[in-house]
């Protein structure tokens, strides 16, 4: 059977000046990830490749281009999960790593643990030869300016994160030709977050979940709200109850809005190659590839397509 891969570049009020670059970025990442599947690679390999591409792209808030915490430093969260075995790896609050998603995969494959945090995650990275990069290489001029702007505000603004003000986490889900699903999510978190703040992204069942018996999900949006409803696991529980992936996503995001007034987005694939990209924020950059057709969108209900050049 054919393979499918979906990516997102974050659900939030993406400003017009970032719109085109965001859409171009997810399209490129989706094609990179799909190329892995076409070569016969696993869903796990494909989501890692897609997310690495997004982490390298300074338009998105992960890896290069990550948001700064109150101290002006970069702390990154990421998760990867294999739906075949439920094996999972995650890192939280890791500093100065260019590809947190690959470090998460190393946690999954080279340790008996699922999650490493803070200095421990950096020590592990060092021990397996993943090099740290200077903070300045991860921080864009844009992010530094935004951080300074908010820094000079009254401090009360920091406490005033509007739940509707989501951020640009990146993520990918895929199903490979063998029917295995996988997910990956990576983020720099919210701007001016407290030192050590962990959002939804690295938390299994919130930022992502993958299970061959139902599907794979990667989430984005207001992290604290996503955590409260364990959004990824919630979506898959609806799929387990017989809902389509699109209905399951809509129902769950609506529940998150009603119950905790949070907005966000999710991408989902099922082992039977159903897929959906859904959001309740103003915009979400997403792209999907199936049967050599590239689908993408940014606005609500927007679904454009183009043929991939062979």
């Amino acid at each position: 059977m054919s393979a499918v891969l979906v990516v997102h570049g974050g659900a939030w009020a993406i400003p017009d000046e970032l719109a085109k670059a965001s859409v171009d970025g997810v399209k490129t990442a989706a094609c990179e990830g799909f190329a892995v599947l076409k070569r016969g690679g696993s869903a796990l390999d494909a989501v890692e490749a897609a997310v690495r591409t997004l982490e390298d792209n300074a338009v998105f808030n992960s890896g290069h281009g990550a948001a700064l915490n109150t101290d002006g430093e970069v702390e990154l969260d990421a998760i990867i999960m294999d739906g075949r075995t439920l094996a999972c790896g995650a890192v939280s609050s890791v500093q100065n790593i260019a590809h947190p998603v690959s470090l998460a995969r190393a946690v999954m494959e080279k340790t008996s643990h699922v999650m490493l945090t803070g200095r421990g995650a950096n020590l592990f990275a060092e021990s397996i030869g993943i090099t740290t990069v200077p903070t300045d290489t991860l921080v864009t001029e844009y992010e530094r300016k935004e951080w300074e702007k908010q820094k000079t505000y009254v401090t009360g603004v920091m406490e005033d994160f509007n739940s509707q003000w989501a951020h640009d986490t990146v993520g990918a889900v895929a199903v490979d030709s063998a029917g295995n699903v996988a997910c990956a999510t990576s983020t720099g978190g919210i701007r001016n977050k407290m030192v050590g703040r962990v959002g939804d992204s690295p938390i299994i069942g919130s930022g992502g979940y993958a299970d061959n018996s139902s599907g794979a999900v990667s989430c984005t949006g207001h992290g604290e709200s996503i955590l409260k409803v364990t959004l990824a696991r919630l979506i898959l529980s609806h799929v387990e109850q017989g809902k389509s992936v699109a209905d399951a996503s809509r129902l769950s995001l609506q529940h998150m809005g009603d119950r905790v007034q949070g907005a966000g987005g999710a991408i989902v694939v099922s082992p039977s190659r159903e897929w959906a990209a859904t959001f309740t924020t103003e915009r979400m950059a997403w792209a999907a590839v199936e049967h050599d057709v590239l689908w993408y969108g940014l606005e609500p209900n927007e679904k454009l397509q183009e043929k991939i050049a062979q």
Partner: peptide, 15 residues
């Protein structure tokens, strides 16, 4: 007391 749900490691100690 915070707008967050989880704090880790040294950040949790600072808080």
């Amino acid at each position: 007391k915070t707008s967050h749900a989880c704090l880790t490691a040294e950040g949790a100690s600072q808080f």
